[in-house]
Amino acid sequence: MNKFNLEQHPKITSGFTTPENYFDTLSNTVLEKTKQQPKQETRVLSLNRVIYIAAAILVLALSVPFFQSNSNVTLEQIDTNSIENYLSYQTNISQYELINSIELEDLDAMNINLALEDESVEAILTMNPNFENYITE
């Protein structure tokens, strides 16, 4: 194998050169450029202000349900069909458990007198075109 010696081979030039006295004047030119640039004002958002804003938003968010819960709904306002649908589809209460949970006062309140007069029954039957079906059944 041949011995390699760097001194014997031709050197490659990089092609880059520095101007004359570049490093002597470099520090002066950098200082001049920094002095010429106007200082920009930076906006500082104080941390206390951010904390107050976040606390106010949190208080408002937590107080919304309390303002909405003031509207109490009474049993008179609830439709009976919606109560029946809820009890039949949304709960696991059987009809026997429901009957056992009703109190006597509630049963008395549900008692409806369905006494009809003969004239009103006859009027309803004559107004209905299929009244013969009702009579035969």
Rank of each mutant, 00 (worst) to 15 (best):
K33P: 03
I51Y: 11
I102M: 08
L58N: 11
V44C: 00
D118Y: 07
Q68Y: 05
K39F: 10
L47I: 11
E103Y: 10
A55G: 02
N133M: 14
T17C: 13
P38H: 03
K33V: 06
S14G: 04
A109K: 09
A55F: 02
N21K: 05
N2A: 04
I112C: 13
L75W: 07
V50L: 00
G15S: 01
F23N: 13
N111H: 10
S71A: 15
F67E: 00
A56F: 02
L62G: 01
A55I: 01
D79F: 00
F16V: 05
T13P: 10
G15F: 00
K39H: 13
T25Y: 02
N70T: 12
V30I: 04
I99G: 07
T126E: 05
S63R: 00
P10V: 09
F66S: 03
T91Q: 09
L6T: 06
P19S: 11
L45E: 09
Q95W: 06
Q40E: 10
K35F: 05
H9C: 05
D24V: 11
I99P: 01
S46V: 09
D24Q: 12
P10A: 09
S71L: 15
E105T: 12
E7D: 08
D106L: 11
H9D: 13
T34Q: 14
P10N: 07
S101L: 09
T126W: 01
F66D: 00
Q36G: 03
L60E: 00
N21T: 01
L26D: 07
E76N: 12
S94F: 08
T126H: 01
I93P: 00
L87Y: 07
D118S: 12
F67Y: 08
N133A: 07
E105C: 15
I102L: 12
A115G: 10
I112E: 06
I78N: 05
F23D: 08
T74S: 07
A61E: 02
Y52D: 07
S94C: 08
I57A: 13
N128A: 11
T80I: 15
L98V: 04
S82H: 03
N100I: 05
I99E: 13
V59C: 06
E97C: 03
I99A: 08
S14W: 04
T42V: 09
E7F: 02
L31E: 13
I124Y: 14
S27W: 13
N70Y: 07
N2F: 14
F16T: 13
Q95A: 05
E103A: 12
S14I: 03
P129K: 00
L31T: 06
V121G: 04
I93G: 04
S14P: 04
I83M: 02
D118E: 12
S82E: 03
E122S: 15
L62R: 02
L45W: 09
Y134T: 05
Y96M: 08
V30L: 00
T74Q: 03
N133R: 14
N100C: 11
